[in-house]
Design a protein around this nucleic acid. Structure first.
Lengths: 227, 227
DNA sequence: TGTAAAGCACAACGTGCATGGCAATCAACT
DNA sequence: AGTTGATTGCCATGCACGTTGTGCTTTACA
């Protein structure tokens, strides 16, 4: 049930980059990586309940028996894959923000910074489709998963992303562009607006311009009053 | 596969209020209503894949055989229940908006109107928990359902709600409170902000004050510039 | 009271799936 | 070559589920 088991040969295969060493250790890590990659793809595509171990094994090019040598079972496999994937996505987001903001910084264009932040957030869904497939699954099936799994995923993924957004918004507020009360609330609103643009309720292709960022920046109010 | 079948004794049981007539017809409609109500509850609680026909039959107090006498199968039952539920929710929303807005109207308080609109939208999730459980399921499993089912649901539910929001926002814009470009885009943003407040990413209790409406109304920008 | 429709319990069939056991195989290291 | 550990194919078990068939029972009305 727990994310990391304590006995047996289990481990977080995705975290092991295994840059050193060949031999069976290398092969073992490769199998583990293949399994997690395949599981991420199939879980994201078909959802937890519809995904069979056989399908994952086929996609990974391993036998089902090998999967059970690496993971305790379907549920633990899903938890491990989700956690690793969320960590990678969150780290990718933070790095992407850093990259885009320093690229836009030279002009000191803080408005461009906000747009860059929105673009980084919007790019996630396109860059990690398998991961967000899994996220949709969790959101639907959260009551049927162990709470530790949910909590661990939130901490590793969305909450970390929101914290980063809040930090950046606070910077922009200090720079004079924004007026934010609670930065974490503002971060939730920002994320909601940006992702709302993407889905277009529902299924239409994502527009490249981020109207939500404009809405966030300008607001719809004609007379600006202080809250 | 289609929403409404053309042969056999099938029908949309929820749409039949059957105020007239007793006898077997009445009993038949009651069974149908019990089935749809139970299906809505169980589907919303456990999701499509985890829900068994046996569970629905038990919740409805009927035999599984009766379910198959009323509906073609699990999938068609889900589609019918989702469509009926979405229609009811959308109609409830529109009626609730009308009620709240006319209640706030006497003072001509347009800002109160916007808040009332937000409250109506926010109240939906609390008033129809089973329905939004089903919605979460569809969002996750949309690729595995027939496209006609998805389209019919969107037309009956979210798109209708969004259209109503856009209409109201346009009124408020004409009244001078808001500056909206495309009302339907503004409606998406409004809905996103209000629902973002509710989930609090994820699972925290809903705050009663709607910060998202404030954000929508005031915006975060210090200097109000024209877009 | 008789009749026809609707509902019921029960069982059965076929399928798919998670999971485990076991012996054979394979690849690397001694 | 022998050892060791990972991997595999194959089989088996057990369960849960969708769906259908079959008589028996209820129910409303003539």
């Amino acid at each position: 049930m727990a994310i990391n088991s304590q006995e047996g040969p289990r481990y977080d295969a995705d975290a092991l980059a295994s840059p050193e060493g060949f031999g069976p250790v290398r092969a073992r890590a490769d199998k583990g990586r293949a399994i997690t990659a395949a599981a991420r793809a199939v879980f994201g595509r078909d959802g937890y309940a519809r995904t069979s171990i056989d399908a994952i094994a086929a996609e990974a090019g391993v036998s089902t028996r090998t999967i059970y040598n690496h993971f305790e079972g379907k549920q633990q496999l899903f938890s491990a894959v989700l956690l690793a994937s969320a960590t990678r996505v969150a780290e990718g987001f933070i790095a992407d923000v850093e990259r885009r903001l320093t690229a836009a910084n030279p002009g000191g264009d803080r408005r461009g910074d906000l747009l860059a932040l929105g673009r980084s957030l919007a790019a996630l869904r396109g860059d990690f489709p398998e991961h967000f497939g899994m996220v949709r699954q969790i959101e639907a099936e959260a009551p049927h998963f162990p709470p530790e799994t949910i909590a661990a995923w939130q901490q590793a993924g969305p909450l970390r992303v929101l914290r980063e957004i809040a930090r950046r918004l606070e910077q922009l507020a200090d720079g004079g562009l924004l007026r934010v009360g609670d930065p974490s609330v503002a971060a939730v609103h920002f994320a909601a607006l940006v992702t709302a643009d993407l889905t277009t309720y529902y299924g239409a292709p994502a527009p490249d311009d981020l109207g939500g960022v404009e809405a966030f920046l300008h607001g719809y109010a004609t007379p600006p009053r202080a809250p």
